[in-house]
């Protein structure tokens, strides 16, 4: 244990540099987000993740955001346990019909101002599950979506870029 701690002190941090935000689409989206609302939030966002029927691939990469390499919290972004503490709902999955009510209730429980980020191809368009009797399809068919992060699953780097754009840093 002592060696491990010492190692941690002596070695360079494993954390990656912050991603560059050069995506035109994302920048345009950032401009659309209400400036006043952003001022109220400061440079911090509380995120509530909602799995609306994903295959759990997106959850793996969202969880990776919290590891020491991506270190989400250095940007003022953190995951919270309740939608009542959240500014952002990060939604994954093709919205399984069995999850629709839970997603709607989670959205209603989130105080305004609030944003919904659809993460992963399923959440953006229904993905491979589009057209299934058991899926609604894109998250935007159930709750208003501010930002879409495609990918199957999106990498932590892509997720981070999207969330930082929302933060307007």
């Amino acid at each position: 244990m002592r060696n491990l701690l010492l190692d941690g002190l002596l070695r360079r941090p494993v954390t990656d540099r912050a991603p560059k935000l050069d995506d035109a689409e994302l920048t345009a989206l950032a401009a659309r987000i209400d400036v006043a609302a952003r001022r109220r939030l400061g440079h911090s966002l509380a995120i509530r993740e909602v799995d609306a029927g994903s295959c759990n691939g997106c959850e793996l990469e969202i969880n990776a955001l919290q590891n020491a390499v991506y270190d989400l919290e250095r940007f003022g972004l953190r995951f919270v346990a309740s939608p009542r503490h959240a500014d952002v709902l990060l939604v994954t999955g093709p919205v399984a019909k069995n999850m629709r009510t839970a997603l709607e209730r989670t959205y209603e429980a989130t105080p305004a101002p609030k944003w919904v980020v659809a993460a992963g191809d399923c959440a953006v368009s229904g993905g491979l599950f589009a057209g299934s009797y058991a899926c609604v399809g894109p998250v935007s068919a159930v709750v208003p979506v501010s930002l879409a992060i495609p990918g199957c699953p999106p990498t932590p780097h892509e997720l981070l870029k999207g969330l930082l754009t929302l933060l307007g840093s």
Binding site: C55, G57, E59, N98, L128, F129, G131, S132, A134
Partner: peptide
Amino acid sequence: YTHKGLESLLAGSTLDHAGRLAGRASG
């Protein structure tokens, strides 16, 4: 809660497409 109708989507798929679907049963 996460039922997506996977086996229904698999039925009628080509082998290649079904392989991609099967790869998303549990990511």
